[in-house]
Computed example of a mutant assay.
Amino acid sequence: MNLSLQNFSTLVSNSAAAAQGACSALLDFTTGSVARALMEANATVALWIQYQIVQVLSITRLSTSFGSDVDTWIAQYGVSRLGATAATTVETFICLSPESSSAVVPVGAVVKTSDGSISFTVTQDSTNEYWSDTASGYVRPQGVASVTCPVQCNINGSAGNVSAGVINLLGTQISGIDTCTNLSDVSNGSDEETDAAVKNRMVLWFSSLSSATLTAVEAAISGVASNLTYQIVENQTPDGLYRGGYFFATIDDGSGDVPDTTLSSVERAIEATRACGVETSTLRASVIQATVIVPVTLAAGVQLTSVQTAVSNAITTYVNALPVGDVCQYTTVSSIALQAAGSLVASMGVVTVNGVVADIGGTTGSVVRIASVTVTNSGA
């Protein structure tokens, strides 16, 4: 609906014209006159009423709502905004003199980033080879230098997405453990669902109400968590064989290793949506590791670490955001590296991904995730 809005001057002018047209005598609308003061007062009230009308019109439609108005709009359908999710990763706990004693890394132990600003807590994983129900933690046997166990960020959101090697402080002193580190980048923490994401999900949700369609399954999966990507394959098994009346969904949460709880949540969401007689499976996406090497010639006075940080962060952000089934494009990786390096380098050599100059990924049920990004100084 298009509203014919008027500004203050137009409102005053139109009011004066209407009043003069209805009066046989000449009215005084000069500045300071009583008639003009009344017209200006009325115009002020009219502007306020116009504003209220515009506000009401904007929040009656989801596409023009924002912030809390989006939340109240979707709440009438029993839908709520997806919250932020905490980043998870695996932490390696190291003993410098492993022959002298054993150690237990307890559930609840805290590790921190190098600046101490972000902390992670050790969580339970009974499938871990070092887990002990008796000790309620992960046991490092005598003679074993390190144990690896899962940790979860203590704050929700993308703030927990840190680079490899950054989580290297012990927040809890553990006898028999001297230091710790994360060997891979953390990338599966996500912020609260944005207004745009909510609106896109609601479109899927409304489209899914009529029947158990592909759109309905997509809406069910996207409603589980805000950090999920997925690929749905119909009438085909994960082995590539034809199977009518069957589909499978492969998912990833940005980490390359979806937790069992998330996998179960997606299975339940699909089960509530699928048509009767249709068989389904929910699988973790198979991970294709990407090792990127960027040769550069540094600009005068620039340290290699500065280029490494800028390029690594930019490439990691791109690759770890790729959805399941997408291709990691070599040209995009190369372009991102060049833009991130900018004036820090005098020139850039041939970027390689897994040792070649080619795209990777794009196969059914696979997802590309960063293994490492290395910047080398070819001008040294």
Rank of each mutant, 00 (worst) to 15 (best):
Glu192Tyr: 00
Val70Trp: 02
Glu193Leu: 03
Ile315Ser: 04
Ala310Gln: 07
Leu338Arg: 12
Glu192Val: 12
Val122Trp: 04
Ile251Phe: 12
Leu47Gly: 01
Phe8Asn: 11
Ala321Phe: 00
Val166Ile: 14
Thr92Phe: 06
Leu209Gln: 14
Ala371Trp: 04
Phe206Trp: 10
Ala19Val: 14
Pro295Met: 05
Thr352Cys: 05
Val198Trp: 02
Ala249Met: 10
Ile270Gly: 05
Thr261Ile: 11
Gly325Cys: 04
Thr237Ile: 07
Val266Leu: 06
Tyr230Gln: 08
Arg81Pro: 02
Ser101Gly: 12
Ser175Ile: 11
Ala103Pro: 13
Gln236Lys: 03
Tyr51Asn: 14
Asp326Phe: 01
Val107Ala: 12
Ser312Pro: 05
Val333Asp: 03
Thr316Leu: 01
Leu304Phe: 01
Thr181Cys: 06
Val122Lys: 02
Thr85Trp: 00
Ser347His: 09
Leu228Asp: 02
Gly245Arg: 15
Thr31His: 10
Ser117Lys: 14
Gly254Cys: 07
Leu228Arg: 03
Val79Ser: 04
Ser80Tyr: 12
Gln142Ser: 11
Ala19Trp: 14
Glu91Tyr: 04
Gln289Met: 07
Ala25Leu: 15
Val56His: 00
Phe120Leu: 09
Thr280Ile: 08
Thr237Val: 05
Val111Phe: 14
Ile94Asn: 07
Val302Gln: 13
Ala290Asn: 03
Val350Cys: 09
Ala25Gly: 07
Glu271Phe: 09
Arg284Asp: 04
Asn42Thr: 12
Ile167Trp: 05
Asn377Leu: 09
Ser306Pro: 00
Val217Ser: 00
Val147Ile: 15
Ala196Tyr: 03
Ala164Met: 08
Cys276Thr: 14
Ala380Gly: 15
Asn168Ser: 15
Thr10Val: 10
Val70Phe: 06
Ser132Ile: 11
Gly244His: 11
Gly165Leu: 10
Leu204Val: 08
Thr250Asp: 03
Ser190His: 04
Asp133Trp: 01
Leu3Tyr: 15
Ala86Glu: 08
